[in-house]
């Protein structure tokens, strides 16, 4: 009963915070409304005994949203909410896409073959079992995908950087770097 109450409250709060992301008129508020939605989503994960994943959601999402706030405020319009702004664009298309995604996810929840009564006893380590259920024989694929993602991030940063090593060290890449501000380890 208590678990149901916690679940219902957190589920409703997660949806309400997600709605707030598109209703507030400041980029900072939108970012932290999204963070609140993720934190409320982490609680049902905790209720499933997936303690590691639940706390990890809070840890990673806090870091991500705080970093995202920096970029959102740097690149998006009206960060401070001094003028009217909207997070919603292409309303009709967005409505169609989100409706379709909701239907697919809801259908998945309804059509998946849930275990029949009596429910089997919960596993000793649900996190381990979930990992095996999701990845199973595809661990290699997942690890390669992780490496590709990481390489993409590094490549993106390298492409985006304003001053590469040729700017710092000159064409022959020798000698002392020509930096306007020296770093902390005397390079």
């Amino acid at each position: 009963m208590a678990e149901w109450a916690v679940f219902v409250v957190c589920a409703l709060a997660a949806v309400a915070a997600a709605v707030a992301v598109f209703r507030v008129d400041s980029m900072a508020r939108a970012t932290f409304a999204l963070l609140a939605s993720f934190v409320f989503t982490a609680v049902p994960v905790l209720l499933l005994d997936l303690a590691y994943l639940g706390v990890l959601i809070v840890l990673m999402m806090t870091m991500e949203m705080v970093v995202m706030a920096v970029f959102m405020i740097m690149f998006m319009m009206n960060p401070a909410g001094l003028m009217p702004m909207t997070m919603v664009h292409n309303n009709k298309g967005a409505l169609a896409i989100s409706g379709a995604v909701f239907c697919v996810l809801a259908a998945g929840a309804l059509l998946v073959p849930w275990p029949r009564e009596p429910a089997p006893p919960p596993p000793a380590d649900p996190t381990l079992q979930l990992g095996k259920a999701i990845m199973g024989g595809h661990m290699m694929v997942m690890m390669v995908a992780g490496l590709v993602l990481f390489a993409t991030m590094v490549a993106g940063v390298v492409l985006a950087t304003g001053r590469g090593r040729y700017d710092r060290y000159g064409d022959d890449l020798r000698g002392r770097p020509d930096d306007p501000i020296r770093g902390g380890v005397g390079r």
């Binding site: 900072a28 932290f32 963070l35 303690a51 590691y52 706390v55 990890l56 809070v58 840890l59 806090t62 870091m63 949203m65 705080v66 706030a69």
Partner: peptide, 26 residues
């Protein structure tokens, strides 16, 4: 004594980032 106490501790430390940033921004 949570089974993932170390992760919990670190998650709470990271909440501080959000706190200090929003305090400064707000």
């Amino acid at each position: 004594d949570l089974s993932i106490g170390v992760v919990w501790f670190n998650a709470m430390e990271v909440l501080l980032w959000a706190g200090v940033w929003t305090a400064g921004w707000g």
